[in-house]
């Protein structure tokens, strides 16, 4: 794996094509780290000059802001804007829809204007520019359902690109009843990831996993590290972990380009 930090690029007097914003989950969460590595492998395969910020990266502040803690949000966000502007960074790719949304939609008000894409969009661009080709049919004919994350879907209107990537794998895409604009949340957004559910009949991730299992798919594809956790936990709670797997789209793509 070939990974360089922005500081290394700067020391060499060079600038990368794009900064890969890894995010807290992608950096520290064991499950999301696998997605980070899968995406780095894709970038390496396509021979993209990219940098990570490493320890200079901070949480974008999404969960703090959505929990209502504007002070903590501003502290971490302004720090990030300073870092990004300090390196004169223009292009950012991230595998986390929450980081994507905050970088893209909330940092401009703080003085940070960047061209931000989600890793599914970036991979799609690599296919379209011919830098990557899908080879082999590791997933040919497999039944896969796609879970729209709220922050790529409803919030940012990205519905077709992730589906297009999945279909390039020659799979059978089955939709859940609540998909696209009607997609059901995994239950993690709005800082719910960091607290227990409020009292109720059921956890939201269980509701979503029941719907996913109802499609008969062997793989549930997602595009968000928090969705991965919630869906994975839900499938384990339903004792279906041997029959159904949850993957980030990049984890499927990386297996089809090698």
């Amino acid at each position: 794996m070939n990974v360089k930090t922005m500081a290394q690029y700067a020391a060499e007097g060079k600038s990368p094509e794009v900064v890969f914003w890894v995010g807290c989950a992608g950096s520290f969460d064991a499950r999301a780290q696998k997605v980070t590595k899968a995406f780095v492998n894709i970038l390496n395969k396509a021979e993209i000059e990219f940098a990570i910020l490493g320890n200079e990266e901070s949480c974008t502040g999404d969960p703090a802001r959505r929990a209502g803690n504007e002070f903590v949000f501003q502290m971490t966000a302004i720090q990030n804007v300073e870092t990004l502007n300090g390196y004169n960074i223009k292009n950012i790719v991230t595998a986390c829809p929450h980081c994507f949304n905050t970088l893209k939609n909330e940092y401009p008000a703080l003085g940070g204007d960047y061209n931000v894409v989600h890793h599914t969009q970036y991979i799609n661009q690599l296919f379209e520019s011919g830098k990557l080709q899908v080879e082999g049919g590791a997933f040919k004919g497999k039944k896969i359902t796609y879970h729209d994350s709220c922050y790529m879907g409803r919030v940012n209107g990205v519905y077709t690109v992730p589906r297009k990537l999945l279909q390039s794998l020659d799979i059978e895409l089955v939709e859940m009843k609540r998909c696209k604009t009607k997609g059901l949340c995994c239950g993690a957004g709005g800082a719910q990831m960091f607290k227990e559910d409020e009292p109720g009949d059921k956890r939201i991730n269980i509701e979503r996993v029941e719907e996913a299992l109802g499609t008969g798919a062997e793989i549930v594809a997602a595009n968000c590290p928090f969705c991965l956790t919630m869906l994975g936990d839900g499938i384990t709670a339903k004792d279906k972990q041997d029959a159904v797997s949850v993957y980030d789209i990049s984890e499927l793509i990386v297996q089809a380009i090698n």
Binding site: V3, C24, A64
Partner: peptide, 22 residues
């Protein structure tokens, strides 16, 4: 979560070594 975002720049209380995954 608030404390660790404020102090270590991460949503979880982990040592600030964001490159360990490499």
């Amino acid at each position: 979560m608030f404390t660790s975002v404020e102090n270590s720049g991460s949503v979880w209380q982990v040592p600030n070594t964001r490159e360990d995954w490499i």
